[in-house]
């Protein structure tokens, strides 16, 4: 009986490992192609390279002006994350506790944003950014990032806030603490789990965003990583050996970050999404 129980997970584990190998193949292909000559890549796409060449990376690094674009990417992601966490947190709390009709109407207006294909609204948005003299600044992308993710984040946070016990806040208000004070001192710290899981999802969106930077960041010193990758795509001459390392450099920072943080990610999402 106990023998039988011990055996079953092994079979399961084996089949999961096979599945994992299949899932990992495209990423392996991406990585291994960067170390090959174009002829090798064409002859045996999945084989190991004969002689490992890392020179492709050095060239891609320089061509992309990597430190520059990495910094831009980082700044955009960082400030967007702060804004898209703090503002929706405050709003979600306000919406969850407000009893007035106007609060409910505003909530519907915000949630309606979830269903709109936002690409349609680019022209007025572009006009707006230009009128505010934000064109070609990282702020343009940051502000748009924050605004566009507000419906999603409010949607995510409000369920969590509603699940928080009211007693804590009530005792705080008896102690003479105002609503805003209570929010910052008591509620916000309690929201940490859901904030963590939202941050994970949002940082993916911000880091990998392409349309925003392409529209609003026009000079090369303001460009983000994907824009540099993109410069080398397209109709007029594509050089594999230079292009694949660029794609790798484009995805590497997030990949490494998520591999290191893997354990916390699952915990973070566990704490955040399930209470909802």
């Amino acid at each position: 009986m106990s023998m039988k129980k011990a055996q079953r997970p092994y079979l399961l584990e084996l089949s999961l490992i096979i599945l994992a190998v299949i899932v990992a193949l495209p990423i392996y292909y991406l990585l291994v192609t960067t170390l090959k000559t174009p002829e090798e890549a064409a002859a045996s796409p999945l084989g190991l390279p004969h002689h490992w060449t890392f020179g492709n990376y050095a060239e891609a690094w320089n061509m992309m002006r990597y430190p520059r674009v990495f910094t831009n990417n980082f700044i955009i992601t960082f400030f967007s994350l702060i804004g898209c966490t703090l503002l929706p947190c405050m709003a979600a709390y306000g919406f969850a506790r407000s009893r007035s009709l106007i609060g409910k109407l505003l909530f519907v207006a915000v949630i309606a944003g979830l269903v709109v294909p936002f690409q349609i609204a680019l022209i007025p948005l572009y006009k707006l950014i230009s009128t505010l003299h934000l064109m070609n600044t990282l702020w343009a992308v940051i502000i748009v990032n924050i605004s566009v993710t507000i419906p999603f984040n409010v949607f995510l946070f409000i369920n969590f806030v509603k699940s928080l016990p009211l007693e804590v806040e009530e005792s705080a208000s008896i102690d003479g603490s105002g609503v805003i004070g209570t929010f910052f001192r008591i509620v916000l710290p309690l929201m940490q789990p859901v904030v963590a899981s939202a941050a994970i999802l949002n940082s993916l969106t911000f880091w990998n965003d392409f349309m925003g930077p392409l529209l609003f960041l026009q000079t090369r010193d303001k460009a983000v990583i994907l824009q540099e990758v993109y410069r080398n795509i397209g109709q007029f001459s594509t050089n594999w050996t230079a292009f694949f390392p660029m794609m790798v450099l484009g995805v590497a920072p997030l990949l490494i970050f998520y591999i290191i943080m893997q354990k916390y990610i699952i915990k973070g999402i566990a704490a955040g999404s399930v209470k909802g």
Partner: peptide, 22 residues
């Protein structure tokens, strides 16, 4: 009023940079 006040910053961003263009 305080609850509504907490909503205002997010609303400003959302109304100006999302809802208005849409």
């Amino acid at each position: 009023f305080a609850f509504l006040l907490l909503i205002v910053p997010a609303l400003l961003f959302y109304f100006i940079f999302y809802l208005y263009p849409v």
